[in-house]
Design a protein around this nucleic acid. Sequence first.
RNA 1: GGGUCUAUGGCGCAGCCAGGUAGCGCACCGGACUUUUAAUCCGGUUGUCGUGGGUCCGAAUCCCACUAGACCCGCCA
Length: 528
Amino acid sequence: MSEQEIFGKGTWIDKLAHELLEREKSLGRNLDLLRVESGLGASGVPHIGSLGDAVRAYGVKLALENFGYKSELIAYSDDLDGLRKIPEGFPNSLEEHLAKPVSLIPDPFGCHESYGMHMSSILLDGLDKMGIKYEFRRAKDTYKNGLLKDQIHTILQNSSKIGDKISELVGQEKFQKFLPYFPVCSNCNRLYTAEAFEYLADEKKVRYKCHDAEIGSKMIKGCSHNGEADITKDLGKLAWKVEFAARWAAFDIRFEAYGKDIMDSVKVNDWVSDEILNFPHPHHVKYEMFLDKGGKKISKSLGNVVTGQKWMEFGSPKSILLLLYKRITGARELGLEDIPSLMNEYNELEDIFFGKIKVDNQAKLLKSKGLYEYVNLLDPPKEPSIHVNYRLLVELAKMFKEDRIERVMKKLLDYGVIKNPEPQIEKLIELAGNFADEFDQKEKVEIDMDESAKKVLKLLADALNAEEEPEDIQNTIYQIAKSNDVEPKDFFKILYQIILGTSRGPKIGPLISDIGRKQVAKTISEYI
RNA sequence: GGGUCUAUGGCGCAGCCAGGUAGCGCACCGGACUUUUAAUCCGGUUGUCGUGGGUCCGAAUCCCACUAGACCCGCCA
């Protein structure tokens, strides 16, 4: 690393921003405002990967600002995207809206103006909760207001050249025959069924015919309508192979990250941007998809979505930011079970940042500190927060289901983990508690009990209910079992099953007094 | 057909992108505590970093080739 220069805060984000700046300088472009873009996608439930695209773009914006340039993040919702599949958990009534742009489909939950806005707002809400600032734009307004009209015009005039290039670059021959523009059929409101076959350049209109089309594995009926669409104001959209390019040129975008699944589209769009629209394409970075634990791509229409909202039930917003900023390369299998280690890793980074943990390697020290700053959106706290190991919290939360916050807090004070009950710890207990409830729901164990065991349980319940606190609960249990010819070993097992739902657990005497002996007595009596 | 990623103790992974003492969790072993088990705490063992070359004072890390697996694209977005 000696001959390697280190940029900014030493993370991949800084390196990327540096590359971007070098490129812009060599292109000789105006550097007054460097726009970065993130696409949102409004047809499926936005998962952590969609969030990642925007969060990382925002990171680049921060890095650019840190280098002294003005930058802004455009969050672009493609709400003219047609609905192709009904996502898991959505009503089948959506069937009639298949192939329609998502912004023209009513919100099945009735809380937003359209299906598309419902989906987008889930993502925007996630971004808001993480403190990401953005400028929101949407496809519907973009096309309606004719913001892309010049680019569409140029693209359609060059459509045969583009069609040939697409065929050459990615082997798709479709656009040698049809225009890379999908009008929304003015008669039935459907996209994709209307095939554009001629561009009337003087009038800026495309002629189309609405016919049956295969979307996914489904046949969508067209309405046979013959129509013309005005590209300056009617609804319709460019095919993806050329749409990015039009947007980049129109919005003056200098950076956009992309997932590897759309690599080919980006390749084509870069060419269109450079050669047809005469706008040097934005700088890119490619990232791998997040996979679920089985190695499958997280799909918006499958049930394996991890949304930001779901994540934040268990982990802090910073744990997501850490996940997304720690690296960008490499395929990653991701699940909610990764939250505990990320929560702890954040604490470790904070300790490094505040010098509580020594790191010898200077480059690594810089990088860790830099990462911590990015996770805090380059506005790190002045004081370290109070650290409590997340796994410990989960263990404690498993024990206390009632009055959880209060009881776990008391334990933490007893253990000397914290000195005072703080509101921020309450929040942590809440998160860890949710985690414990979600992942520790052991299937109701069939408890194997004979009559003598029940008798002993009854005796124990009575003892626990007595006004006088038994001196030594552990010993009391042992004695009761022994004097009634029940193996203490088996009896302990039964108690763990009743109290914790497992066949083993922490030492039972203290456990019972922690939970409250009357509470335990009550629980036990339900089994007698 | 095109492309990308992955390969690191028994298992699951981090470290690689900007080279400098190979790390973590689980498992395992020992100890402490325990009137049982477990939990907890302390300590410990476990590695030719997929194969072969190259660059370098120095490679898990960078470059090239190869092998195996996974995924994406070749509908649409």
